[in-house]
Simulated scan of single mutants.
Amino acid sequence: MTVRAAWLQTTGQTREDTRLTLAALLTPSGQSAEEAQLRSRPGVVPGGLVLTGSSPMQCTIGAGRAIVQGKDTAQGAYLVAVTSPELLTIADGDPMYDRIDLIELAVLDDAYDRTGVTEAVVRLVKGVPAASPVAPATGPGSTIPLYTVLVPKGISAGAGGIQWNTSAVTTLHWPVVALGGILPASGFKGAYVGQYRDTAGLLQRWDGTTWVSYPKPVGGIAPSTTTNGAYTGQYRDNGGGLQRWNGSSWQYVEGASTVLFSATQWLTTQAQSVAPNTWTVLNLPTVEVDEATGWTTNNTYTVPRTGWWRVSAHATWANDAQTGMRGARVMVAGVGQGRLTWLTPAGNGAISVGGSSLIRLVAGETLQLAGFQSHTAAIKTLGGSGYACTLSAEWIKS
């Protein structure tokens, strides 16, 4: 018979019939063409068969469930449950060399492997001591490797025993889930189109050729850890700011993620004396808003994001004298900007001079407000009584 069914015939259903048909509920192996249809992915149901050191030279393998695919495809897959911890004793170390022991889950089926035994076991396979030891070959039957244990030379219960919570123990087994389940693992190709896996917290789908991260097919917003976009137009959340992949780099989205900054010199006690005929950087001690934490001193703002910015600036001057000019200028990386420079004659009263403009800035450049006056002696800026010196900036678009 090449077509088999479970629990159909009134008599005659074999164990092989049952294993092969129940495998319809299991994830196919799919790691090679010949494995695609009748071989199931072996492995341990997540969370099971945990190794715990119980004494210097003994460990337990905890309860759990697993799938063991038979060596012969016709065997089908064996569903195995370890219902209580299994105790294993490690032999003392060799006097001269280290060795590596193997712990594995095995299904022995005499009908196929001619071992004379039919049972499922957790067993220890002792390695061979050597200057450069390797794990021993698996034992008879159909198996899943669970762990290797490095047994140092001369080790015993009296000599400290195995250090179970160190790199002496290496986990070899892999997780397995039912058909359609999301597999918490990586490092293997998918078994069928539409299979999902969770790798390092990122959901991926097998498209028949490669694993595709979840945001690609559905247009979802990728996490900030996504270094390169999967397609033009993909979005990612970068620390609360929305970015769009333009095919070669991430660009912040216009209108979707602003950056605001504003600092002011507005108290009378903050007034600053400015010498004549030189552009002098003004101190702005009061910060109203700084969403990117770019204001690191009293007079310098470090641009956090490349793109077009709307920059506004004003310098207000006290009525210390009525001659000469009064000015304000925005400095970018220490260089005055022509489109952000303003001058006006002095008058009989306080003078406020400034304005705003769009300017393209590069992340890492600095912004400063400088004041200028051409009277013959020093003049103070003016704060209080409704006057202030101020510098503000707003990111507009990439």
Rank of each mutant, 00 (worst) to 15 (best):
V128K: 07
A350H: 01
Y387H: 09
I144W: 05
M57N: 00
R326S: 11
I379R: 02
A263T: 07
A292P: 07
I221K: 03
G180K: 05
Q13S: 13
V332L: 13
L242I: 05
E16F: 14
A168S: 09
T225N: 04
W342K: 14
V362S: 08
T166I: 10
Q163W: 08
V335R: 15
L203V: 04
A24T: 13
T258V: 08
A130P: 03
P145C: 03
G127D: 11
E365F: 01
L102M: 06
Y235M: 10
Q204H: 02
T227S: 07
M331Y: 12
D113L: 06
G43R: 07
S249P: 00
G154C: 04
P145A: 10
Q373D: 01
S142M: 10
N246L: 07
R360C: 08
E291Q: 15
G349S: 05
L150C: 00
N238G: 01
A77E: 04
P95D: 06
G347H: 10
D72R: 07
P345D: 12
E291R: 14
H314T: 15
D113C: 03
S352K: 02
E254P: 04
V45R: 11
L88F: 04
V353L: 11
D101E: 01
Y192C: 12
R197Q: 02
P95G: 01
D98E: 05
A23V: 13
R19L: 15
A275V: 15
E86F: 08
G327P: 13
Y112I: 13
W309C: 11
G364H: 02
R244T: 06
L124I: 06
L361Q: 00
C59N: 04
A24R: 14
T143C: 11
T296G: 12
T11V: 15
L369E: 03
G384S: 08
Q13I: 09
N299C: 12
